[in-house]
Design a protein around this nucleic acid. Structure first.
Lengths: 209, 209, 209, 209
DNA sequence: GATGAATGAGGATTCATTCAT
DNA sequence: AATGAATGAATCCTCATTCAT
């Protein structure tokens, strides 16, 4: 039998997890400055004191929240396998998966917006490693497409990732101003398929054009 | 008849303008919650009391800042004329102008991010009218392209506007997390032309593909 | 009739004065770190908020307390005139006045001890000017004594001031440890005259020896 | 028989000694209230818990620190033998030794200041016994001087000890405020000899005057 | 209309200490 | 005897706002 953690440690992990969960919601909801440490503590089974015990400060807690959010998002992405498809189908599938993924995680997108408002000052160095696979997968598809002669040759994987991300992120992140300016709900259910297809079309047209 | 404002009123306008200018910087810099009313007042020639006198509350001031920011941005956009070009050249020109425009106004983009974090609750209704021309211009280009048989027929002007905006906004708004995750500066001067061309290519390929 | 201050300003001064008075007691009693801002506010007719409004921080308040304490002590000293006495009588009178003065102001001595524990980091520059007269007076007496041929010629006024101060300060400042170590109350009323005379003897013997 | 302490006890003594050493520095540096139990523990190879285990409380630790500091200081003083000198030379030698001794132990002087701020409430009773020899030695010199007819007869040993101590302590303890008030560094190396001689002169003049 | 002074309510954080084994 | 984890109760400070003229 594998070594079992002592009861204590599991409590510790569970409590930290609970704090992170509640803090994620609070930060995503109100931004870094708008989030209230008291509020986070109150919605937890522990006290504000424990929050400081585990995370040191409001800032330390936010860093932990960001770290966990990125880890969760990349873990979810990893599950997808698109390598066996032909290049065109693969890149469309990847774009569409990214599309659905963003729609499913609005809190993550809000956290990223918030972190950018704070000029990325809470981004741990470890995050770069976590995100590398996303680009590598695109790289593999691009290479296959170039070798098959169906993709233009001058496209960089990071830049294509940006093209896909910008579309997916904007739809979620800028939903509210877009609604006010153009009276259009970017997340309306009856438009979702259209937007998803549009993204695939954009990416494929660009790569094969 | 020329407006003959009394001396008082001109003072009033100048003071309000100064407050708005300082407040725009403060809100863009620190977010809504992070912005400090004291700080704004201090960087102004008036007092905090006047700020409340003119704008009622921190929220009222933020609404005024947003309103002014949108008005300024659309006024600048209006000066561009792309209608006389052929559809492909016109849409590329428009996309590239939008690209440069966003790069030139990072504070505006930050304010929009901030407002989206706050779920668009400070967006005045009047803003819809201000932004309509941007879509109408795209509409005109799309129609010309469709009639000339060079554009696909199923593209909506608002959606194309989103495609262009998302790319331009993301580059500025998500610069910091992107730098941390992929070690790439999206605003590096030596990549600007490449990114601008890429956007044009994307849009044209999509429309003509 | 002289200009009368507006009612408001007098309130302000009175309130600040009250805060300083209470803060002086609290700092003298518990030291800088041991003093409680809440406690000071509570013993005042104002709120803790006003304390920060007027003095900015606990540290700002402590600086103000020190400044006022030094000003008060030197103002009291100034009232004494010893210049018309012969040098020996004058220096003895000055020493004895200093002696009584210190005994009468134990809180001041405590504040000075506390400030020395904090390495003098709260001493305003203005204090040097306030204290110059004390040395100048000694200087005048020393000069007269040297000219009369009754004092040794190599004594510096600041150093003689230190000799006198050290004796007077120690009696008050180190009272408690002295009591514990030697079972002697340095401030016992029935020893006061003896200690006062001893100081005069020490100073006169040194100068005339 | 040589003491054969069990290994455990020696560990215990070593740990306690380390805690005391670190705590002495921390209390001397920041005062009683300003000292941080966490900080002390962190600079030790043990944990905060052990500190409570051995000393019971912050106060208990401070009492132990004081006790040890007094013991160390008196032990050092004891090594000096001045009894074989003639009374005038002996008292001057003793004063000058005390002078050097204080300069060499500023932390001890700071601890004593701190304890006096706290009204001597942490002074263990045992300290009286430790300090008795200091006075007894002065008593012997005074008696010899009186019998030789070179000293005045009305001087008490404790009081002479105070005269010497006050001068030596003040120079170290009040260094910082003196610097700020009179722009003079009482511990400047090039003044040390002068101050030491001055003390001897003062004491001898008083006793023989 | 214009303004210097004042403030209630809340905000992040720290402190010495004890629990549970 | 020895100890890693946990914590109640403060502690200093700040914020948007309003009072009183």
């Amino acid at each position: 039998m594998a070594a079992t953690q002592p009861e204590r440690s599991r409590d510790r992990d569970r409590t930290q997890g609970e704090i992170l969960e509640v803090a994620t919601r609070e930060f995503a909801e109100h931004g870094y400055s708008g989030a209230r440490v008291d509020e986070i503590a109150e919605r937890t089974r522990t006290t504000k004191r424990m929050l400081y015990y585990y995370f040191g400060s409001k800032e330390g807690l936010f860093v932990a929240v960001l770290e966990q959010a990125y880890a969760a998002i990349r873990a979810a992405e990893q599950t997808v396998d698109v390598d066996h498809l032909d290049p065109v189908a693969a890149i469309r599938a990847l774009a569409e998966l990214t599309f659905d993924h963003h729609e499913a995680h609005p809190d993550f997108i809000r956290l990223v917006s918030i972190e950018n408002i704070h000029r990325g000052e809470h981004m741990a160095e470890s995050l770069a490693a976590i995100n590398a696979p996303a680009v590598e997968r695109i790289e593999r598809i691009l290479r296959a497409g170039r070798e098959a002669g169906v993709f233009r040759a001058d496209v960089d994987a990071v830049d294509l990732h940006m093209l896909i991300s910008s579309y997916c992120v904007f739809r979620v992140a800028n939903r509210h101003t877009w609604q006010a300016l153009f009276d259009r709900d970017l997340l309306a259910a009856d438009r979702r398929d259209g937007y998803r297809t549009m993204l695939g079309d954009v990416v494929v047209a660009y790569l094969t054009g």
